[in-house]
Design a protein around this nucleic acid. Structure first.
Lengths: 103, 103
DNA sequence: ATTTGACTTGTCAAATATTGGCAAATATAG
DNA sequence: CTATATTTGCCAATATTTGACAAGTCAAAT
């Protein structure tokens, strides 16, 4: 029952032959915390996601996208209306982008 | 700078010729609170959204969808990656639905 | 100009949630 | 078995959210 960000993070950590201990130390957190992040029990902070992208040598965007997606899934959790709501949200975000000239 | 749910709520309240005072009393909150909900400064609880749908004589789904959409927009706030992340989240939700037989 | 009613703003403490960290349990490897 | 890696459970500190109230603005009526 993990999340997408955590799964990818673990995969990357293994590809890079790093231990939780090592990665955790760079992020200045303890290993239990990193373990929880990998298993989706805790949420990384944005700053940590960016650090992790550098450590794992992937783009910020890749990890930030997964990280954000997890949060979206989180708020829509078990709702049936999730997909409909996402459509509405998507339209609104697009709409806001077009009128970014103002304000 | 309102949100979609709040705007719709206000619209419905006016269509139904109700005062904040009246609606608030049904929800058992004070008027300042309802005012804040309409202006998107505070988030209604799911239970209140359902009550409001009844009061305003619209479907639960309509209001719940807007309410959820606002929360999605909230977590993705100013992120450029919002749309990309929503796509990822959407795929994941669809995927989870297909394998709902298990669990 | 003052009163009245509807709505908004600002502030606060209480309730609730999130956080980081530790100690202990459980894997996994050698 | 021993050592190292990871996970689990728990707690106190911190932060966020909540509901409530007092005071504010605003418009209409008089």
């Amino acid at each position: 029952m993990a999340n997408q960000f955590g799964e990818r993070l673990k995969q990357l950590r293994e590809q890079n032959n790093l231990l939780q201990r090592q990665v955790a130390s760079i992020l200045e957190i303890d290993t239990p915390m990193l373990s929880k992040i990998e298993r989706g029990e805790r949420k990384a902070k944005k700053e940590q996601v960016i650090q992790l992208a550098r450590i794992m040598k992937v783009s910020n965007d890749e990890l930030l996208t997964l990280w954000l997606a997890d949060q979206i899934i989180d708020v829509t959790k078990d709702e049936d209306l999730a997909l409909k709501a996402m459509q509405v949200a998507e339209d609104e975000i697009k709409y806001r982008k077009t009128k970014k000239k103002n304000k």
